[in-house]
Design a protein around this nucleic acid. Sequence first.
DNA 1: GTTCGTGCAAATCTTTTGCAGTTTC
DNA 2: GAAACTGCAAAAGATTTGCACGAAC
Lengths: 141, 141
Amino acid sequence: MSLSAEIILRENGLRVTPQRLAVLELFLSHSGFHWSADQIRNQLLPRIPGLARGTTYKVLEEFVRSHICEELPTPEGLFLYGIRLKPHHHFACRKCHRWFDIDVDGVDNIHISSILPGAVIDDIAVTFHGLCRDCRVNESQ
Amino acid sequence: MSLSAEIILRENGLRVTPQRLAVLELFLSHSGFHWSADQIRNQLLPRIPGLARGTTYKVLEEFVRSHICEELPTPEGLFLYGIRLKPHHHFACRKCHRWFDIDVDGVDNIHISSILPGAVIDDIAVTFHGLCRDCRVNESQ
DNA sequence: GTTCGTGCAAATCTTTTGCAGTTTC
DNA sequence: GAAACTGCAAAAGATTTGCACGAAC
């Protein structure tokens, strides 16, 4: 696990530091999960005792720039970060505010007829909002 | 125009104030546009000289709660507000950062097979990211 | 007259920035 | 050794909050 994180960093031309390894390994061991910068920092503090907020943000910024991570703007007004292994969409729970990756196969192709004449489309982001199973179960008690 | 804004406020059980009327009339006369709280305030300052930032946020919060407005979290880390007349999706320009409403008819139905077992889906938000026509034209000069 | 909304200012929260010291290559 | 990264602290920017006054019903 430590090895592949290092390889990913080198492949992306990023220097290998304990901070970057820790963040990337956290993502690799929890693909499909999304966290805020502070949630990431808090999880890593035991392993990297002095990890600074600023460093966490800089690592994540670098990962976003390298397309290792995605940065999701949430209705709560902060960003969540997750690893970007393959194209996917999201389900966001309106109660626990967790975001889950959704396989693209789960969504049929979206056909764009004449969305906006003249515009160039790079990316389509589909986000489902609702109540996740955990929250639905807890709510109906 | 002034009349229908007043009716919309009353229908939603909201008191009619000059500030709320001004915000709502701005939206009504520019449906499909989206602005930040400060952009809204700046446009209204000539009409409502003392309009406070806090008031703008409170008006928008009330409109979101009443489903008069939608609140869009953007990659730039702030919210854009727009009027919510009928279901639609969005196109966000990566250069000028404007958001445009997209008619739902422009997007074929999205079929959900088995997205997340047990989850309840309330809403589907589709956002296209790319370069709008204006920016594409300017870029190719 | 009571309830609710506004303006103002301070506070909060997330994220960014600058810099000196340290690590990576 | 040069370039890049980290920690720290301060700054920035958006949004929220509390409260006294005034407006809406």
